[in-house]
Design a protein around this nucleic acid. Sequence first.
DNA 1: TCTGGGGTCCTAGGACCC
DNA 2: TCTGGGGTCCTAGGACCC
Length: 410
Amino acid sequence: MSQTFALVDCNNFYASCERLFRPDLTTTPIVVLSNNDGCIVARSQEAKQLGIKMGTPLFKVKDLLAHHKVKVFSSNYTLYGDISQRVMQTLETLAPHIEIYSIDEAFLDLHGMQDAAAHGQTIRATVLKNVGVPVCVGIAPTKTLAKLANYAAKKYKATNGVVDLRNPQRQLKLMALTPVDEVWGIGRRLAKKLGYHGIHTALDLAQMNTRSARSRYSVVLERTIRELNGESCQPLEQVRAARQQIICSRSFGTKMTDKEEVRQAVCEFVSRAAEKLRRDRRLAGRAHVFIRTSPYYSNMATGTVLHPSDDTRDLLPLATELFDQIWKDGFRYAKAGVMLSDTCSPQALQQNLFSTPRNDALMATLDKVNNSGKGKIWFGSQRPRKDWFMTQENLSPAYTTRWKDLPVVR
DNA sequence: TCTGGGGTCCTAGGACCC
DNA sequence: TCTGGGGTCCTAGGACCC
């Protein structure tokens, strides 16, 4: 019995979330900005039609946005995370097994279902009714084909948001029409390379010899080809693996030349990363610090955490040491960041003979205060001025997760 | 084209071992 | 010393994804 996957993907997710609580914006073009209000990471349908591209820096299109009265939002991850949970909870009632693939996508196990296309319509209607977010559904015997089906469901209006791609004839037809870079796993680099070898459509790729794909490219490409041919190589992953690394990095609004200032920024990143680590209930075994001045100089230093830890006081001195190793005077720094890796769970960690008992209560209190919205506690080495950190000029309220931001009905 | 931030997986090459 | 073969582990970097 062959498998059947459904890929459910929210339409213009962040823009749809913002619109949910602003019915006055139903027909207004909307864009959502990245963390630092740096560039555009989501657009409503109307904004897409204005030719605004994904990833465009805000300053490049400021005039265009103003001219067309586009509503601009800073990203509000608290809101998106909460709406995402509601979507996923609804999806869990619509299939025996689901894999949450990203904040706005999930694979559903529909194997053995007679009329999967009709069920696809049920999924659309139910999510729209329960949460208010429009979704599209792609159905196929492999994840890669389900992705492709979803692409078609979004692109071709006549599909009514659901494409059932279980029929091999339909698979061939769609693949012949689809540029190879729309295939899941084929990015810009690979698409260009494949183009040199005369592979332009998804069908060209599907017909490529798997053996030569493996030797000339990689096992990943081989797997993609097999999946395009209906051979499922990627099972549904119901349990999410714990994060292996945590990154906190920022581009600076204005270039930095002062060592002390950059060092303080790095310390701030360490604190943020450690906070995420504790939220995950993980310990880090390794820390990395990197700095960059656009094209000329970039460097990274890596160090081992003596005893894997989630304590900011352990990580801060190490990061400072690493920072000193890579710092060079006389450059104008554009970006810095910290990565914590080799994470493990506290249970998995063997008790070390020399490890001192950690003061978890202090870190817990610190996190509690910093997340309360009532104030911030920081270490002396951090940079208290955060003018360069998290610019959010157009933030929407946390409608669903903060009492005072609840929408009021008049 | 490097513009944002946060992730994953794979591979080539070096260090080191017998 | 650079001459054989075989293996493991680690790291940096490339490619992808959302």
